[in-house]
Every structure is written in C-alpha cells, then in structure tokens.
C-alpha cells in the first residue's frame, strides 16, 4: 500500500523539498518533518517526505541478525 523510495534532500524551502533518487528529482512536501536539511536522506511516499532516514539497510539488517544468535 505504500511504495516508498529513499532519496536525498537537495534543497528545501517553505515546506517543500526537492529530493533526488539516483538522479531523478521531484518536488515533495517536507512539512511532516521538522528539522530537515539539504543532504539528509528521507523516505518519500506519494508526494511527502514521511521519515528522515538514518543508516542504509545493510548495516541495520546486519545488526538485527546479530541480535538473534
């Protein structure tokens, strides 16, 4: 139900951000996230940045898997 794509914030102005995913740029709403800056990575869904992302999936999944030994 929720196709999302991680993208990098290129610029931000007045509740609107331009994000870049592999060279594809799109203007999306940034008003759901406070304290967003250019260079941050976000998860984008249907025209809004819905979450600021911290790490890439590889580090995170490795850590989770170490926990289930």
């Amino acid at each position: 139900m929720c196709v999302g794509l991680s993208a990098k914030v290129v610029s931000i102005k007045g509740g609107v951000a331009i994000v870049d995913a592999g060279g594809a740029k799109k203007t999306v709403s940034s008003e759901l996230l406070t304290d967003l800056n250019p260079g941050d990575y976000v998860m984008v869904h249907a025209g809004s940045a819905i979450a600021k992302i911290t790490a890439d999936d590889e580090d995170e999944t490795d850590m989770l898997l170490e926990d289930i030994r």
């Binding site: 139900m1 929720c2 999302g4 709403s29 759901l32 249907a46 819905i50």
Partner: peptide, 11 residues
C-alpha cells in the same frame, strides 16, 4: 490509502 498516504491528501 492508509496512514502513510493520508497526510499527503491533507497537505
């Protein structure tokens, strides 16, 4: 849509 999509509709 669900909770993920609804905020965009509100915006």
């Amino acid at each position: 849509g669900f909770e993920t999509t609804t905020p965009s509709s509100c915006i």
